[in-house]
Amino acid sequence: MPVARSLRNIGHRVVNAVWRAGFAARFFAMTLLYSGTSFRRFHLVVREMFSSGVMSLIIILVSGMFVGMVLGLQGYETLKRYGSESALGTLVALSLVRELGPVLAALLFASRAGSAMTAEIGLMKATEQISAMEMMAVNPIARVVAPRFWAGVISMPLLSAMFSAMGVFGGYVVGVVLIGVDEGSFWSQMQSAVDFQHDVLNGVIKSFVFGVAVTVIALFEGYDAPPTAEGVSGATTRTVVQSSLAILILDFILTAFMFRGD
């Protein structure tokens, strides 16, 4: 009965996915509920911010610089055809602040810090440190999960702002210093086109949402990972894949809400 078996297989997968989604939602709610501890003992959050935020700085800054430089180069080549090289600053700043800053910083954060979070919590579970905490009446969600969540959520907007600022600087270096676009029009056109509320604040909101999504996915995958070497490695892969997909899908939804162009 191969048909019946494959049907049973599909049904099993669907039920499993729904079950996991429910568990993930409960996990998220528990994380929010027990996050009081991480604010009373803020040094827990600070320690996680070091490992997820500060340690991601190099990759964020270097990538931001190069993305901005590429934007400057490509934008110049395209804008030159229409004789509007002076709009280079606008192009670089708007694309970084609205889209590339939040999205690329979140993708880098997911693969740099999210995977590490999953592996760490998965290994904690595999080596029964989580169970040991429960034995000692320490709530593992309050002690292990919530500080990592808040560290990620606080770090993400800061990282994306640094990415955008670095990118604008990269675009400036290529456009103004190397190619020789007029410096005054580079900055003044940028400033007249970029609106603080509409562009910069919406970018910050975006990166905040991405921060929540990435850390929740990473922490849940780690917490839910089968306690084996294989299980942890599979969970790490799933974290990167799922959070990248979540970032891109959420980006589309948020962009549709924010920049409908009324």
Partner: peptide
């Protein structure tokens, strides 16, 4: 330093890039 740099980047975006 990380937090200060992040907030500094936001201020730069607001003042130098945006028109606040």
């Amino acid at each position: 330093a990380f937090v200060v740099a992040g907030i500094g980047a936001l201020v730069v975006l607001a003042m130098k890039v945006g028109n606040l």
